[in-house]
Simulated scan of single mutants.
Amino acid sequence: MSAPFVLAVSGPPGSGKTTLSHALSERFGGAPVLAYDAYEEITGWPPERVAAWLAGGAPLDAVPVPGLAEDLARLRRGEPVPDRERGGTLRLSRRAARPVIVLDTLLGRAHPGTGAQIDHLVWLDLPLDVALARKLRSFTGAARRDPTAAPGLLEALDAYLGRYDALLHPTYALQRERVRPAADQILGAGTLAAHLDAVQSAIQSTLHATLTAVPTPTA
């Protein structure tokens, strides 16, 4: 089997990177998805610590994502790792000529631990106001699905918006400044299906017919 191909998807929160990552997993034969959000700890920082980090130049090597680089390296070696996002275990798919690993990450190649392991980086180029609108709809959508959770969601939404001007918007602007330039592919507005086709077209020759099914090894 060929060495795994690490396909990373990045963009601001609300850009649809998680949706695209899991759709790419399906497109590429059940590829495992490693999610930055399942490892990151910066959202647990108090506002004053985030403000100090921004004032100090916002070094991305100071963003704590314990275990993410190590789990990505293990998957690349063909070892299983825990699925911290959805539970269970992540393994390379045996249904493709060259296995793919999808990395759903805010940091792209700018993160020293995982950046060097990325083979192809997709940036979802969504304006921050549109990304914010989508993020807000994630709160309202959750409240519609479970009205009993609405009070807690309203409190979380209020806290999110309370931090947006001073902390979150500057962080997202820095992300765009530092992550976008290193992208191999930039996707703007478009449907999920169009984005899937664009990514597949961009990397297909490198993958050497990844989508060609191969027999599943028997025990």
Rank of each mutant, 00 (worst) to 15 (best):
Ser2Thr: 09
Ala3Arg: 15
Pro4Ser: 10
Pro4Arg: 12
Leu7Met: 04
Ala8His: 03
Ala8Tyr: 07
Val9Trp: 03
Ser10Lys: 03
Pro13Asp: 05
Ser15Ala: 15
Thr18Asn: 07
Thr19Met: 06
Ser21Gly: 08
Gly29Asn: 15
Gly30Arg: 00
Leu34Ile: 05
Leu34Arg: 01
Tyr39Ser: 00
Tyr39Leu: 00
Glu40Met: 13
Glu41Lys: 15
Thr43Gly: 13
Gly44Thr: 14
Trp45Ile: 04
Pro47Gln: 02
Glu48Arg: 12
Ala52Ile: 07
Ala52His: 14
Ala52Tyr: 10
Ala55Tyr: 01
Gly56Cys: 05
Ala58Thr: 10
Ala58Pro: 02
Pro59Ile: 15
Leu60Asn: 07
Ala62Trp: 06
Val63Ala: 11
Pro64Gly: 02
Pro64Met: 02
Val65Ala: 14
Val65Trp: 00
Gly67Asp: 08
Arg74Thr: 08
Pro80Ala: 07
Val81Phe: 03
Val81Thr: 10
Pro82Thr: 04
Asp83Leu: 04
Glu85Phe: 12
Gly87Val: 13
Gly88Ala: 03
Arg94Val: 09
Ala97His: 10
Ala97Phe: 02
Val100Thr: 10
Val100Asp: 07
Val100Met: 14
Leu103Val: 07
Leu103Lys: 04
Leu103Cys: 06
Thr105Gly: 08
Leu107Ala: 11
His111Val: 10
His111Gly: 03
Pro112Leu: 05
Gly113Glu: 11
Gly113Trp: 07
Gly115His: 03
Ala116Tyr: 03
Ala116Ser: 14
Ile118Gln: 10
Ile118Leu: 12
Ile118Asn: 03
Leu121Tyr: 06
Val122Tyr: 00
Leu126Ser: 03
Pro127Asn: 12
Val130Ser: 06
Leu132Tyr: 02
Ala133Asp: 12
Arg134Met: 02
Leu136Ala: 12
Phe139Gly: 05
Thr140Asn: 07
Ala142Trp: 00
Ala143Glu: 09
Arg144Tyr: 05
Asp146Leu: 06
Asp146Arg: 03
Thr148Ala: 14
Thr148Asp: 15
Ala149Thr: 01
Ala149Pro: 00
Pro151His: 01
Gly152Tyr: 04
Gly152His: 14
Leu154Arg: 01
Asp158Ile: 00
Ala159Tyr: 12
Ala159Met: 10
Tyr160Phe: 15
Tyr160Arg: 04
Tyr160Ile: 01
Tyr160Trp: 13
Leu161Phe: 10
Leu161Lys: 03
Leu161Glu: 11
Gly162Trp: 02
Gly162Asp: 00
Arg163Leu: 09
Asp165Asn: 14
Ala166Thr: 13
His169Lys: 13
Tyr172Gly: 01
Ala173Leu: 14
Arg178Thr: 10
Val179Tyr: 02
Ala182Glu: 13
Asp184Arg: 10
Gln185Cys: 09
Gln185Phe: 01
Leu187Met: 01
Gly188Trp: 06
Gly190Ile: 12
Ala193Glu: 14
Ala193Trp: 02
Ala194Val: 09
His195Thr: 07
Asp197Ala: 15
Ala198Asn: 12
Ala198Leu: 13
Gln200Asn: 06
Ser201Met: 09
Ala202His: 13
Ser205Pro: 04
Thr206Gly: 12
Thr206Arg: 15
Ala209Cys: 08
Thr210His: 09
Thr212Arg: 08
Val214Glu: 07
Pro215Gln: 10
Pro215Met: 13
Pro217Gly: 04
Pro217Arg: 07
Pro217Lys: 10
Ala219Glu: 07
Ala219Lys: 04
Ala219Ile: 05
